[in-house]
């Protein structure tokens, strides 16, 4: 068992090394000042307390929420690639409730706004779950399509019912301070959402490994027929639970971003966190505790890429290229390994 587990992480490490080499190749082939770009990447991510506490960890927070959302869904064999839409639904609901709760004390307003985000994300994923269980609609398609619906819903909200009163900008007014997630260090942007996300990661790990319900989730993902036949597990109920939990995690990510970073709802509130989540979860092999590290790595990458663009003129989309390479790398290594095992 140990040998097999080790092999997986060796492959993961190898994937990362290959990708680093590929990035170096791209930088050199593009004629960029490679040493300067790499220095900017490092400094932008870890080079100063500002880089770490106001850039990297701030970026890592939503990635951790959505990474957990995708991770737990994939563990159950539910291919939820709609974390982006669920995050947007959560952000919209948290802002809507937060705007209404402006006059309430923080101890009431904060949990209610966060809860609204979780519920909205769960409900958004629940649509795909219901379509899947009732009509057999593939969740890969429905969750992806619902991402677009959610994006346009946000567009409508910030131009319609939730638009700021002057009706000039497509966004809401700023949330009252009582629904801001408090920062963790004075003068830095890192906020309470990070603590919540880490607690949820530990909770998700404990749930999967130590509870009967978590065991059912893993069993359904690893062998549906055996889970049903040998375990008497109700596939529909377990799958429904996973859709809701996954959506709620992504929705909380949206609420945390709106209440901790943007303090308002607008169209570009997520630069595609829900899609990056797939790479975050896959690189961590869907292990909740490793997802913490993987989210940190991607947060650093995105923060560093922004710095690289400012200082060395390297387009920050390089970060997206790296994410795509990770997904392709992990999947193809796994595929090759599975084929070798069954040869």
């Amino acid at each position: 068992m140990a040998g097999r587990t080790d092999a997986r992480w060796v492959i993961t490490a190898a994937t990362v090394v290959v990708i680093i080499l590929a990035v170096l190749g791209i930088l050199m082939a593009g004629g960029y000042d490679t040493p300067r770009a790499l220095a900017a990447l490092w400094n932008g991510a870890f080079g100063s307390s500002y880089a770490l506490f106001s850039a990297t960890l701030v970026r890592a927070t939503p990635l951790l929420f959505v990474g957990l959302a995708v991770g737990i869904a994939f563990r159950a064999g539910v291919l939820n690639i709609g974390a982006e839409g669920q995050l947007l639904a959560g952000a919209a609901a948290a802002v809507a409730v937060g705007l209404a709760m402006g006059g309430f004390p923080r101890v009431i307003a904060l949990p209610l706004a966060l809860g609204a985000g979780a519920m909205a994300g769960g409900a958004w994923a629940g649509i795909a779950g219901w379509l899947n269980l009732r009509f057999g609609v593939l969740e890969v398609i429905s969750t992806l399509m619902l991402n677009f619906v959610a994006a346009y819903l946000v567009s409508w909200l910030v131009r319609g019912p939730l638009q700021e009163p002057t009706r000039v900008y497509p966004q809401t007014v700023e949330l009252a301070p009582s629904v801001h997630l408090p920062t963790l260090i004075d003068g830095h942007r890192m906020h309470l959402g990070l603590v919540l996300a880490v607690v949820l990661a530990v909770g998700a790990w404990w749930f999967l490994t130590h509870t009967a319900a978590g065991f059912r989730v893993r069993a359904v993902g690893a062998g549906r027929d055996a889970a049903r036949s040998a375990g008497g597990i109700n596939l529909g109920r377990t799958t429904a639970l996973v859709f809701l939990a996954s959506g709620a995690l992504a929705g909380l990510g949206g609420a945390s971003e709106a209440m901790g970073v943007t303090f308002a709802l607008y169209e570009g509130i997520s630069p595609g966190y829900g899609y990056s989540a797939i790479a975050v979860a896959l690189l961590a092999r869907l292990h909740p505790l490793v997802i913490v590290l993987s989210a940190l790595l991607f947060g650093a990458l995105e923060a560093g890429a922004a710095a690289m663009q400012r200082e060395a003129n390297v387009p920050s989309v390089l970060a997206s290229v790296v994410e795509a390479l990770i997904v392709l790398g992990v999947l193809s290594f796994d595929h090759a390994r599975a084929r070798r095992r069954h040869a």
Binding site: H210, T211, A212, R216, G232
Partner: peptide, 10 residues
């Protein structure tokens, strides 16, 4: 075996 009806911790 019996996982469907189990409650609580494993």
């Amino acid at each position: 075996r019996g996982a469907g009806a189990r409650r609580g911790r494993m």
